[in-house]
């Protein structure tokens, strides 16, 4: 990142000193993260380091106990209306896709625009087809999720999120549950999305993806952000020992 000065209104996601506990267990410790509009962040780290919890706090799927989070300038509070407002502007893609199995692919994409944004069915369907087209799965629109492969399901899940016109997309290990031959088709869609300027926070171990699209790579361990850098210095010249160890473990074979 070259621009040092950031206008406050450019900030899409702000997390200031966010702390979270599961009972006594301190999962997130003083997280400080600011994401600008259009910025692409990749979060990595060993399992249990709190990276999924971190992004799940942004749309309040997990509740943080201390600190401040705001999305697009709207502060996240306990207020249900406020939470729903933020969720409407934050798309999320899950590790296990979480498509709705009782609805067809098209209905999966239409249901939120129709019931949350009150769009008429025709308009919602046209929108859904447009995004299904973009993730190259429009021809499967009438099938049910159970009839699709993992990679296809994940692409539908991305289209489903995009139908809400989110300002930010959160990806929670989107390729970890996929068979190896399907990872590429999902990553390709994500790269295209990044190229179109979508603000993205992506928890992933796909280091190739991080190198191609990330503006910043964040390394987490034991609930803390250990290191944060542009991909090139991050991979070639990691500062902390824990980052070096982690990178040697995932890249060193």
């Amino acid at each position: 990142m070259t621009q040092a000065a950031t206008n406050a209104s450019d900030l899409m996601v702000e997390m200031h000193n966010v702390n979270k506990w599961y009972g006594d267990f301190h999962v997130l410790r003083d997280i400080y993260l600011e994401v600008k509009r259009g910025e692409r962040i990749v979060v990595c780290g060993p399992s249990g380091s709190g990276k999924s919890t971190l992004i799940r706090c942004i749309n309040h799927l997990e509740e943080h106990q201390k600190g401040d989070i705001s999305v697009g300038g709207v502060a996240l509070t306990q207020d249900v209306k406020r939470i729903e407002q933020i969720r409407r502007s934050v798309g999320m893609v899950f590790q296990h896709f979480n498509l709705f199995p009782h609805l067809s692919v098209l209905e999966n994409c239409c249901i939120a625009p129709m019931w949350v944004q009150k769009k008429p069915r025709k308009e919602a369907e046209a929108l859904a087809m447009q995004y299904l087209e973009r993730v190259r799965i429009a021809e499967q629109a009438d099938k049910y999720p159970g009839q699709l492969s993992g990679g296809q399901q994940q692409r539908v899940a991305i289209a489903r999120s995009l139908c809400m016109h989110p300002d930010v997309m959160l990806f929670d290990e989107p390729t970890s549950a996929l068979d190896p031959e399907m990872i590429k088709e999902v990553l390709d869609v994500m790269v295209e999305l990044a190229e179109e300027g979508m603000t993205m926070i992506c928890v992933t171990h796909e280091m190739g993806f991080a190198k191609t699209v990330a503006d910043r790579v964040i390394f987490m361990d034991q609930g803390q952000i250990i290191e944060e850098n542009a991909p090139e210095p991050f991979f070639n010249n990691p500062q902390s020992e824990r980052t070096q160890l982690f990178l040697s473990q995932i890249l060193g074979h």
Binding site: R87, V90, M92, F94, F100
Partner: peptide, 16 residues
């Protein structure tokens, strides 16, 4: 019903 179903719906901004 897996918890992910409710989470996915919640993430789309649906009310309870």
């Amino acid at each position: 019903i897996p918890k992910g179903q409710d989470e996915a719906a919640a993430a789309l901004g649906m009310t309870y």
